[in-house]
Simulated assay, not measured.
Amino acid sequence: MKSTILTVRVTGELYEKLSNDSFELGITNSENVRSIIKKHFSGEHIGNEIYNSSDFIFLIAWLFEKKANRYNNCNKQELINLTKILQKVISSNCMPSHLLEELDNVLNDINRFIKEFDAENNHFRFCVPYQDDTFDYTGIMEYIVYKASENKIQL
């Protein structure tokens, strides 16, 4: 396909950020801008938006709260909303597959919990320490730190 020249005016600050990013990547500003535009229109940028959403932050906070207390302190509707957040994160496919599998296990456990909502001594199983299916808290923290270092997550 024949290429077309596109001229864009940006602030000095944005130009400096683009130039620094291009330098770090070892590419020209033009190559960087083409890559950014291509990612935007292909939908590749969507996964990164999830990391900075209030839903994702709520999910991570809830997961770590369960590490300290595996018993439920939410009503059924809040748990259903949590399953929707998990489904959105999983379907975005924006994490390594092993973490997506971990989140899928959490989703399955929440769904089980909802079905057994009124059962006596019902608790979440994904967060019980030293079990084969215990959630990988270290893995998710390392991934969040890695993404934060890439400036994909704003801490």
Rank of each mutant, 00 (worst) to 15 (best):
T134A: 08
A61L: 07
T83V: 09
N81H: 09
I36C: 07
N48E: 12
K67N: 03
L18R: 08
I60E: 01
E116T: 07
E13V: 14
V128M: 08
D133Q: 08
G139I: 02
Q154Y: 07
N69T: 05
L107P: 02
N52W: 06
V10D: 08
H45L: 12
T134R: 04
Q154R: 09
E116V: 05
K88Q: 11
E116G: 05
D133I: 04
L59C: 02
E78Q: 15
I37N: 06
E102Q: 14
N72S: 04
H45E: 11
I27M: 11
E24W: 05
N151Y: 09
S30Q: 13
T83F: 00
I60Q: 01
H40C: 07
F117A: 05
R112E: 07
Y15F: 11
Q87I: 11
E102N: 13
S53I: 09
V128P: 00
K39M: 10
Q131C: 11
S92L: 04
R70E: 03
I140C: 01
R9G: 05
S91K: 15
E116Y: 12
D55A: 09
L103F: 12
K115N: 12
T28Y: 06
V106M: 04
L14S: 11
E44N: 10
I60N: 01
R70L: 01
E31I: 04
E116Q: 13
S92A: 15
E44H: 08
V10Q: 09
L25R: 15
C74N: 13
A148C: 08
V145F: 10
I36W: 06
R34L: 05
T134N: 09
I114C: 07
L99K: 06
E120S: 10
W62D: 02
D109P: 02
D136A: 02
C127S: 15
Y71V: 03
E49S: 10
Y71G: 01
N29T: 11
E116K: 12
N69I: 03
P96I: 11
D55R: 06
A68D: 12
H40M: 08
C74L: 10
D55L: 04
S97K: 13
N111P: 01
C74M: 11
Q77V: 10
A61W: 03
W62T: 13
V128Y: 05
D55F: 05
Y51N: 00
V10C: 12
E78W: 03
D118N: 15
T7L: 08
E102G: 00
N69Y: 11
Y130L: 11
